[in-house]
Amino acid sequence: MDPIVPFELSENLWIQSIALYMKDEQTAWVQQTAPRALAYAISLVRDRTIAEDLVQDCYQRLLSRADRYDLRKDGTKLLFKSITNACINWTQRKQPTISFEDLPSQEMPEAASHEGPPEHAIKNELAGAVHQALGKLPVDQRAAMELHVLGYAANEIAGILETTAGNARVLLHRARQQLASELETFLKEV
């Protein structure tokens, strides 16, 4: 008997069990990362439908190559890099057809119901202002800014944006300056 036969059969046996495990692992990872990834993509492309399509595509491409990556260790960074590239590509290809002015009420979620009306109003106003201010930034500055607040260091942002760390810092600096100017009123209250 060919000695490799029992190996293959045994392998088949374990594979099916591991596949179940992996399915749960990957589902958990998607559930954990999807809301933040979608929020990031919406902020970059300013359109939820487009963002969902791009994010879905990025996840599926990443998961189809899961054998090449350690999702637990590197998955989130790879995902955000993929989403960043997809969103920037989409943004650069497409001429804006919608007004940023329309977006806050369309995309911003309602405040949590336990908040009282004044706080609700303030937060809605602030969130809308931040949304609009971010929308006025060039997409690479917006990405640099948002990646920074998501916790990525300058060299990681540079890797995601495929630029140098120095340029990433420049993008972040410019984004901060413009946002500070746009949100001056709110910053005084912070």
Binding site: P35, R36, P109, K123, A127, L134, V149, L179, A180, F186
Partner: peptide
């Protein structure tokens, strides 16, 4: 300004 953007993204993610 980082905090404002961070809270904005966090809120967006939480409520999406």
């Amino acid at each position: 300004v980082d905090r404002l953007v961070g809270e904005y993204l966090e809120r967006l993610a939480d409520e999406l």
